[in-house]
Design a protein around this nucleic acid. Sequence first.
DNA 1: GTCTATAAGGGGATAGAC
DNA 2: GTCTATCCCCTTATAGAC
Lengths: 202, 202
Amino acid sequence: MPRTQKKSISAEIRIKEAAHKVFLAKGFSATTVRDVAKDANTNVASVSYYFGSKKELFNVVMLEKLGLLIGALAPIVNNESTTLEEKIDGIVNSYIEFLKKNPDLITFTMNEIRKENFEFIPRIGVSKLAYQSPFMRQLKAEYGTINPIHFQVTLISMIVFPFVAKPMMVQSGLTNEKMFHKMMEERKLLIPFWFKAMLKNK
Amino acid sequence: MPRTQKKSISAEIRIKEAAHKVFLAKGFSATTVRDVAKDANTNVASVSYYFGSKKELFNVVMLEKLGLLIGALAPIVNNESTTLEEKIDGIVNSYIEFLKKNPDLITFTMNEIRKENFEFIPRIGVSKLAYQSPFMRQLKAEYGTINPIHFQVTLISMIVFPFVAKPMMVQSGLTNEKMFHKMMEERKLLIPFWFKAMLKNK
DNA sequence: GTCTATAAGGGGATAGAC
DNA sequence: GTCTATCCCCTTATAGAC
């Protein structure tokens, strides 16, 4: 029975992993507890047993998804000992790599947040990252006349938005997996180059 | 009875308008036909009568939403008699104005497309706009060594992504309606300036 | 901890009156 | 064209056996 050996992992973990997968693919409303239980190789009752309700399970998933999004950025942005240029290169490279492994994460999280308020969002540290990070201070020190939020938003936009538009680009015939991969590899070099050009033209 | 005079408009139109509103707010799965019927001031049977099913109604809405997204861009991008710089200014200004009136449109459409394939997407002209427009030809003529799709994606990213991130930025305390409005007004000037700087640094 | 069975209600769709 | 009543399936959640 090498097939469904998954039973050896605790049911709680299997359910959470299944929830990550199914919620991401279908969104909160289109997902049923049965979907999740089936994917976790267990039954609906155990979902209630471990997580209380569909909504509570979803909140656990959302919190972890947001943790991933922030976690991939925080160490670079908060590094006290790198230059601004090093941070730009680091952000572009790691975030593109991260999103290539998690292409649906942005659209999923931003859409769920759009549809509903999550009371835990103020506590995950987005504001702190944007307003109190060494990255922000370095931008401010060098380009003080423009609100540094503009530079941060612009850099993240150039990295992230292609992943938001990807399904549309693929379905419209504008690109495919291979072309998209190539485009994002090119952008690892183009975005830092362009972003630094932008900064210099202040 | 000035209150629910809406009855004077045909039920078909009322249903479609309600569908636009409710689907946008909740997404396909979380929307019920009963929600739509109630908002349209009619009953569930008339939804079937005019549109066949929830899914067919949704397809009508999606097609029109995508028409809006493309329609706000097409006249500028396809204009044969404006310069590249004029097109950049035009795209930034009109698209920001358009999205300020429709802030949820991008996240909604991109997420629904992500979750499901829509067979009509190849026929709405995204590819043609990207690959055969005067805008594309002007980019290619001046900056032929880099695939012009990169410039198009970058320009659209800088305009559109703030609207995708807005709910997150608001809920995290990073911004509010007033600050966001101000930021987007500033970007009407900053984006063309930055984008042209990018092009010159080719 | 795990599971089956079931309660309680909501959902899309339609029959058939008007 | 419009509406009410109803069909029938699917959903979340839980009781209670093991």
